[in-house]
């Protein structure tokens, strides 16, 4: 087990390097003069040239990549031209918000998706199945961005049920930062009201973000449950007189959840990517919105940092999923 984890972590470093090469290249092929941007709109041509040499923008791409890696190795993520702050500082502020939002979304997708998948399978071709499949198809068909806008327009602009955007109201006090996730920090200091407000702010963006994942989880879990419920060990369990609830919720589900877990891992990655869109719609100050703004202003170092962090998060999640797989399936456990 430890060996597997070490091996996977090693592999992760290699993959992150690859990711860095690709992002670095793409960001530098994109039009726009980084020296000009760094110098600001009022800078004279001389100033721009000076900055170009100073920051190494005149060197060859591989050399600059080497320099960037050296800088990364020292734990320096660079500086954002847009915010004027060190990228690490920005990320320390924005990343917890995104983690909070994504965790909340995953929670929604799993807590609803798994039981819905089970129900649809148990009631195959009956009303609950049709209703749940309709939901699942909508999740595939509706673009996240559009769904976010619609939710925002109808539920918050028209009906006023939810806040329009942000993490808290303008006049709400932010609780002391412990984890940086407002709802959790508020809970930790016993401030239920603020925790509630923070959750209310997350309902709409999390719904938009979780919808495609919800649809995918339902689909996979339904199919797996149908398959598993037809297996011989289910017949044997029934032959022993074991009741339907135990058979469905324990005997069958523990088998069916394995492929669903893989889907959850995959969808987690999509969600991370989706934060760029959803956070923009809901003006939710997370790393996705930060990345969107950085991309618009060709703010190079934040883009690099966000990409690498999201990549690492995706890889770590999948490692975690694989470990859970091993925990649930003794056959996998023996292989590692």
């Amino acid at each position: 087990m430890q060996r597997l984890i070490l091996k996977r972590l090693g592999l992760m470093v290699v993959m992150l390097l690859g990711l860095a090469v690709i992002t670095f290249t793409v960001a530098n092929i994109a039009p726009g003069d980084p020296a000009r941007l760094a110098a600001g709109p009022d800078a004279s041509p001389d100033m721009v040239e000076k900055i170009r040499v100073e920051r190494g923008f005149d060197r060859a791409l591989p050399v600059r990549f080497g320099l960037y890696l050296g800088q990364l190795a020292q734990g320096d993520l660079g500086t954002s031209v847009y915010t004027g702050r060190p990228v690490a500082q920005d990320i320390a502020v924005f990343l917890p918000a995104t983690i909070e939002l994504v965790l909340f979304s995953i929670l929604i997708a799993v807590v609803l998706g798994v039981p819905f998948g089970v129900l649809a399978a148990v009631w195959q071709n009956h009303l609950p199945d049709h209703a749940i499949r309709f939901l699942s198809v909508s999740g595939v068909a509706l673009p996240m961005f559009w769904l976010g806008l619609m939710l925002q327009w109808y539920l918050s602009l028209e009906l006023g049920l939810f806040p329009l955007g942000g993490r808290l109201g303008t006049f709400d006090d932010v609780p002391t930062t412990i984890t940086g996730m407002i709802s959790i920090d508020a809970l930790l200091v016993g401030d239920l009201a603020t925790a509630g407000t923070a959750l209310m702010h997350m309902v709409l963006p999390a719904t938009a973000l979780s919808f495609p994942a919800l649809a995918a989880i339902i689909r996979v879990n339904r199919a797996e449950m149908l398959e598993v419920l037809g297996r011989d060990y289910v017949v044997n369990a029934r032959a022993q007189g074991i009741g339907p609830f135990r058979i469905i919720a324990i005997y069958a589900l523990k088998n069916a959840i394995l492929p669903t877990l893989a889907m959850i891992g995959l969808r987690f990655g999509w969600m991370l990517g989706g934060t760029v869109l959803v956070e923009s719609v809901f003006d939710f100050p997370g790393i996705g919105l930060y990345a969107a703004k950085a991309a618009i202003s060709s703010d190079f170092e934040p883009i690099m940092a966000v990409t690498l962090i999201l990549g690492a998060a995706f890889m770590l999640t999948n490692l975690l999923i694989d470990l859970m797989y091993a925990l649930l399936d003794p056959r996998v456990r023996n292989q590692i």
């Binding site: 369990a237 005997y251 056959r331």
Partner: peptide, 12 residues
Amino acid sequence: FQDPMTYLNPVF
């Protein structure tokens, strides 16, 4: 039943 390989639940 016929096939003892498949009539026991693999994950318990």
